[in-house]
Nucleic acid binder design. Sequence first.
DNA 1: CGAGCCGTTGAGGGGATTCAAGCTCAGTGG
DNA 2: CCACTGAGCTTGAATCCCCTCAACGGCTCG
Lengths: 242, 242
Amino acid sequence: MSVIPLYSKDSRHPQSAVCAACEVRRSALFGALDEQGLERIHAHIAGPQLAADERIYDRGDKGVAVYTVRSGVVRFERVTERGDRRIVRLAGRGDLIGQEALLGRPYADEAIACTPLELCRIPCSLVDSLGEQQTPLMRELMQRWQSALDDAETWVADLATGPARRRVLRLLLRLAVHADADGVIWLPRREEIGAMLDMTIETASRLISQLRRDGVLEILPGRSARIDRQALEQAARLQDEV
Amino acid sequence: MSVIPLYSKDSRHPQSAVCAACEVRRSALFGALDEQGLERIHAHIAGPQLAADERIYDRGDKGVAVYTVRSGVVRFERVTERGDRRIVRLAGRGDLIGQEALLGRPYADEAIACTPLELCRIPCSLVDSLGEQQTPLMRELMQRWQSALDDAETWVADLATGPARRRVLRLLLRLAVHADADGVIWLPRREEIGAMLDMTIETASRLISQLRRDGVLEILPGRSARIDRQALEQAARLQDEV
DNA sequence: CGAGCCGTTGAGGGGATTCAAGCTCAGTGG
DNA sequence: CCACTGAGCTTGAATCCCCTCAACGGCTCG
């Protein structure tokens, strides 16, 4: 890999010295910028340091900045429907966190320092102005990337957490989103349910049968089923209580 | 939301008729394009239909196209270290799949049709030419989005699969990546391990203690530990056999 | 009609949770 | 100085949930 001097070293602004000394600069977000671009940037980047367990942002906060992790470990947390915390991902040195802010979206997770932390805080406006030439197509693409990421994290919090019955109910809720007009959903094979929810086909079968007996589900030919949405939602709510 | 006629209806190319009739066009990737852009596109987009269980692409395949799901459900699979399949995410109508191809990366997962499927196949070259104005910064951003997505999916396959001991070992392997020069890692609180791996603090404690007794781990003050990387890797390998 | 796949159900065992007690250690105040 | 306290960790015992192993029924297909 060719190594190009990415950051101007004799700049006037004090932050530029920090950037020049930054050990993650080769993998940093702005590694691709030229000298002129960097000049404009230094003035606006802050390098906050956090202690372990300090929050960087909360889920739902209006996103106004993205961060690069210069050292330490960050965890992303969500609160499950049942009310308990679930850590869905970690980020470490060189990782970018809070990208959703660039799309004008609120932060998708709580971000919390696991260890003492050194960050680079980059205001969204900075990236916006640098990326003014971004086409609608590029923007649309990034939206989709973020949606996929959000889906994957929701998967961890919803479908990989709690007892088997709860996971099955949450899977059905999710499949119900793609239901057709008659409330008919695609019902996976038992083996596929197992691969989604990390359980055996026997357990999947038992739980589906149980839900069928409870009237939540009516199994139709051709790997499909009609669901009683009300009963399903109630069963899920009941599962999450206590 | 304002609804603009996005697709030209009197175009000469037959695909344009399909695009004009496409029910997901409002949420489609190219929804943002103007009429002229669409004219150039139609000729190159295919609308393949797949039966349930057909593969769209394999993990590791060279990515040459992205796809929009027009109808049906797609599952993303990975094979765990232990050798079994794990479904890490689903995609449905309107979702874009295989974005990593746009970055010149191989596909990150196996993508398989769950139901009969209608897709739009969009060659990468098409997006590249439309997005020629993409800056290095934008490209870098998309790289990071994909990395985060990949992390989240790996989390499902690695840390949310299998018995507790296996999950703890895989977590330690992952933390070992961020180890300092002395092989010292950040060791989470038992409660944090629980939130990452979906287990109780007692189970986490028992397993960490067991690994300490086995010499895999030496617990140091200040939420850190020195790991015997060889022993750790062997323990993980052993866990994945049989 | 037998073979094979998929789903269902039962019995038994094992792994994780629950409940409970005791431990270390840092911080506090008498 | 040392008892007191509370947070975090460890360990034990009992329970329960899920896995394993097994048998069986319905269905498609050669």
